[in-house]
Write a protein that binds this DNA or RNA. Structure first.
Lengths: 233, 233
DNA sequence: TCACATTTGTCCGTATGTATC
DNA sequence: AGATACATACGGACAAATGTG
């Protein structure tokens, strides 16, 4: 019997900066380096890894583009561990959509699927705290609109809170990506306050259905809501 | 009425290498630089942009991590435009799942959702060529198994081909990510040929249902198939 | 097999910019 | 305002890889 081919993958000799970025990455994944921790300065890292500063810098670029660190210059600056992977995913998805010319319809179809699933899981797994967060989101949005202000960010947040309530981290990640891309699409057209208001009303109904665990009814409302938003583009 | 906050985003002064990477990126998106085109050497780029080679190199690292170029060393080497964005997305999703410690059950739940949606879309949109590719995949897998060899890669490919048939590029990207992560999970346990065989038989039935457009029946088989695989972990 | 040219990979030293104290 | 500790950027050099003649 032949051996699984995949064990031979990637024998390509690594470049020094790749090796270094991988080493630091492992330390982050293992929890040795936690969010907020500061890495040594470029010079120190160069000494420790016994390479030049240029090599260290390229390794840091990789970690930056992987959404694992942020770099600040000036006094007290330096590289700090900070998880921004989902931000990077969003950025790449945007690129992919531009390159592969993904249409808004394709995006909407995928969004419908995922939001449906999220709602279904949320019905089963939402706890009191989730319900409270969702209700608070709606209240704050309504207050803004009463003051004749847009509630865009809160309306996006509603869907993220639903994802939280699903208790599935995959959905949380995917929803974050969807939100960011949706935000990107939306920013290209002029917004009006009426849209915000319509959205909040839909959210309120969806929350009610979630509490009463009315699956079918809520999901068809959710679909309606998403398709209404899509039409406005 | 208050103005949308997002119009003020990112006034952060760009670093030179960011500016350069952005400029090249735009040329790629505009189609001025096409897949297969070779960029000038690092030295030439440094002269043209009037910066040092170090700066150019960091810009190239960004483009590399963005899945837009590949770099080859030595004579006849250099930087070539090549789209590998989805590969990068997959890699980042894997990172995100590791960071957030996504469980196999969470992953399986999300996978079920997406594969169900893919199959549904595939029923509507698959053309003759898709069917042919799926059938060929199964035939080749069966041939391997007849020779007592594993058909792991082909079995993964089957699901990718289904995603292709859905004609939704978002699903194609998501399915690739699922495959990569699944592959990662699977590699941690010993594989046996019986699993390959079971999978191919399931694939064959699913293809049959796809051709006959038997939605419900096929989807429940698909679910069964995915859950069987999950149990083996 | 062996030199050779080209291009990336890596190193060192130095200078400048920048945010905080 | 000035001292500081960083990142950012520059220039020149050599090492390593990789096709070609």
């Amino acid at each position: 019997m032949s051996v699984d081919k995949t064990i031979f993958k990637s024998v390509k000799r690594q470049r020094a900066f790749e090796e270094i970025s991988l080493k630091i990455k492992e330390l982050i994944f293992e929890g040795v380096l936690k969010s907020g921790d500061k890495l040594p300065s470029e010079g120190d890292l160069a000494k420790q890894f016994n390479v030049s500063r240029q090599t260290v810098r390229e390794a840091l670029r990789i970690l930056e583009l992987s959404g694992l660190i942020v770099v600040k210059k000036g006094f007290g600056g330096g590289t700090v561990i900070k998880n921004n992977i989902s931000g990077r995913i969003v950025s790449l998805l945007s690129d992919a959509f531009r390159m592969e010319k993904v249409s808004v319809d394709e995006f909407t179809a995928a969004r419908l699927t995922i939001e449906r699933a999220i709602f279904n899981e949320a019905v089963d797994n939402a706890d009191d705290r989730d319900i409270e967060n969702l209700r608070e989101n709606i209240d704050r949005a309504k207050n803004l609109i009463a003051k004749n202000e847009m509630a865009t960010d809160l309306n996006f947040e509603f869907h993220s809170l639903l994802a939280d309530a699903s208790k599935n981290k995959v959905f949380v990640i995917l929803e974050r990506a969807i939100n960011a891309i949706h935000h990107d699409i939306r920013s290209r057209r002029t917004a009006d306050i009426k849209t915000s208001e319509t959205a909040v009303r839909a959210h309120e109904k969806i929350l009610g259905a979630l509490i009463r665990k009315e699956r079918e009814k809520a999901i068809s409302m959710l679909e309606q809501h998403i398709l209404t938003v899509r039409k406005s583009y």
